[in-house]
Amino acid sequence: MHPAFSVIFLTTLIGVGQGLFLALMTGQSYAAVGLVTVSNPNEFYAYGSVTALLFLIGGLIASFFHLGRPERAWRSAARWRTSWLSREVIVLPIFMLLVFVYGMLHFIGWDPNILGAEQPLQGQLSLFVGILGMVACFALFICTAMIYACMKFLQEWYSPLTVINYIVLGGASGFTLATLHASVYEPGLTQLFGVWATIITLVALVTRLASLYRNTRIKHKSTIQSAIGVRHSSIDQKTQGMMGGSFNTREFFHGASQIWYRSVRWIFLILTFPLTLALLWAGLETGNGLFLALAFVSQYLGLIAERWFFFAQANHPQNMYYQSI
C-alpha cells in the first residue's frame, strides 16, 4: 500500500494524545488511592489535557487531507453499524470532548465528591469523567486499528497484533510525553511515568517484532493463478492495459526503492525502541528534561517511520494485476 502522510500523521498524533491521556489518568488513579501525591494537580492535569487535545486536533486536521471531498466529512458518521472508519469518526470527537471536559474540571478546580464525602476516593467527578475518557480512548484505539485489521485479504494487517500494536505504540509514545510533561509540571511523578513508558515501550517492542516476524513469513492466499483463473505455473503479464499508470498503480504500491524500504524498518526499530529507552534512562538518571524531550522526539519520528513501514509492507492482492507495463 502507498503510505499516505495524512493517515500516518492521523494515527501517530492521536496515538500520542490517547497515550498521554491514559498516562494522566494513571497518575490520577495512583493519586486517588494515595500511592503518589500530586502537589499541583490542577495545572498538571489541565495542561496535560490541553497537550493531549492539541495532538488529537492535529490528528483530526491531518485526517482531512486524506479526503477527496473534506466538506462532506460529516456524512462519514452514517454507517457505524458496518464500517470501522465510521465508528472512528464518531468515537474521536467523543473522546476529544471527554478530554476537554476532564481538562476543564481540573483547570477550574471543580471536583465534587459525587459518591458522597464519606468515600475515601478523592477527585470523584474528574475520575468519573476520566474513566469514561479511558473507555472512549480504548474504543478509539480499537476503531483506528480495526480499520486496517478487518480487511481479510490484506493479510499483513488481518491480525490481532495490528490492534495490540496500535494500543501499545500509542501508549508508549503518550507515556514518554507524559514523562516529559511531568518533569516540567510535576517532577515527583517523572519516575512513575518514566518507568511505565519504559515498560510499555518494551512491550511494544515485543509485539511489533512479533508482527514483523509474522509478516515476513506470510503466505499469500491469492496468486496470479487465482487472480485471472488460469491454472498454469508459468504466467507472465505482458501488458496491464495502459502505460501511463493509474489509481491502481499509485495507491497500492509504496513506490520506494528496496534499499529505502529495508532501511525504514531498521530506522523505526532503532528510533522507537532502543534509542528512546536509552534517552529515557538518561533523562531519569540525570533529571535533565532535555533527554526526555529527545526521547519523545526520537520515539515520535520512529513511529512515523513505523507507520510508513506498516503501510508499505501490506501487499494488496490487486497488485498482481499490475506487475508489468
Binding site: H66, R75, S76, F247, H316, P317
Partner: peptide, 20 residues
C-alpha cells in the same frame, strides 16, 4: 453526491476495481 473520497472502499476491493 455522498462519496467523501476517503479511498477506503478501494482498499477493501481485492480486485482493484475502483478508481478515485
Amino acid at each position: 453526491d455522498k462519496c467523501i473520497g476517503c479511498k477506503y472502499c478501494s482498499w477493501a476491493c481485492p480486485y482493484g476495481a475502483r478508481e478515485l
